[in-house]
Design a protein around this nucleic acid. Structure first.
Lengths: 207, 207
DNA sequence: GTCTATACATCGATAGAC
DNA sequence: GTCTATCGATGTATAGAC
């Protein structure tokens, strides 16, 4: 491969890593090109060699964070029981969010006015979250309302954990209890692992 | 009362109202004294007559938002059935948060690096939320874990509603369904309205 | 109480030398 | 590819005249 391209990618990676470090220290909104450049050992204008704008840096960070979640979800062991698989998803999601609140904020909230991830970067998130439905379906949980409620439940745990007990476990430790509550209401044991039956269309014409 | 004090309070209120308007338009972090002053019909330095710093304005906004929630919770009709009372709390909370996301953000998250509400302002929030325990207790829900899970559930609904469907109802409409799920697991009908029995301490010495 | 003027810092971004 | 220099704007806050 072109050695120039390799060096360029290495520099981009260093800049990105530094951006993460500063964002975690000072907050996403306080991120400045000046501070990044100084820590990398450059001057601010030199960053424009690697990223065309500040928002491009945010977008690269977004894609980075989303990819990490997608990769972690994809690399889970596959041959487990449906409910256990759901547990592993919940555990992974809660861990992912609480171990790096800034990353969570960038990927799942809209913390920077004027910044939206590019369509390309956003697709990574969409794919990572779309597998939620599959895991729920396998555990006998069907329907859009159940999916939305599932997401709300664990987003809430994470949100309160980060806002009110950063570094602690007050809410994150409730994740399995929360999952039990959810499954008790929404899991249909009889249909677990089976497909949702296709609704009979045009029933009137058939009778 | 001193007419000077009245005029002063009126000006403070006008500044505050304008600050809310701008924060809703541009985001909390983008709030600038310049823009506030311009909209009020002043110059930026004149604001320092009414607020000693920008953070003092944030704090006044925080106290304002927290007071609105406290007042709304306090003014609910009191003579209702426990579960209905819980429903009214949930409905009010979800409405409060979704009708003004910026206010929600300021009161329940830490959106501005470097700003923390003063102890005095924070007390307002604490009192508003402390009544949650009473409402839950009356409905037969006891214990710290249940309380934390209750908060997580509805914070999650609000958070996803604001982030992914602003102005819509995709998650907020699930509030009663969520409450049902929660009560099905945590409400103890036999003990509804009664005190949680004091655990027998020193059981070993009693037997 | 409100103003002008200003201090002082920081920001993102561009132009052009080397 | 990195630099210096600089633009142009924005930010909070203070001093002092009126």
């Amino acid at each position: 491969m072109d050695t120039r391209a390799v060096r360029r990618d290495a520099s981009r990676a260093r800049i990105l890593e530094t951006a993460w470090k500063l964002a975690r220290r000072d907050g996403l909104g306080a991120l400045s090109l000046h501070a990044i450049a100084q820590m990398v050992g450059m001057r601010a204008p030199s960053l424009y060699t690697y990223f065309p704008s500040k928002n491009a840096i945010y977008d690269a960070m977004y894609a980075d964070g989303a990819s990490q979640l997608a990769a972690a979800l994809a690399h889970r062991p596959t041959a487990t029981e449906p409910v256990e698989r759901l547990r592993s998803r919940v555990r992974l999601f809660v861990d992912f969010c609480t171990t790096d609140p800034i990353r969570y904020q960038l990927v799942f909230e809209r913390p920077i006015p004027g910044f939206e991830p590019t369509r390309e970067s956003f697709e990574i998130t969409v794919k990572a979250l779309s597998s939620t439905r599959a895991d729920l379906d396998a555990a006998g949980v069907h329907g859009k309302r159940a999916l939305d409620l599932f997401r709300a439940l664990f987003t809430g745990l994470v949100s309160l954990q980060i806002a009110n007990d950063p570094g602690g476990q007050r809410w994150s430790r409730l994740q399995y209890e929360a999952l039990e509550m959810f499954l008790a209401r929404y899991a249909n044991p009889a249909r677990a692992g089976r497909r949702k039956p296709r609704p009979a269309k045009m029933a009137a014409t058939l009778t």
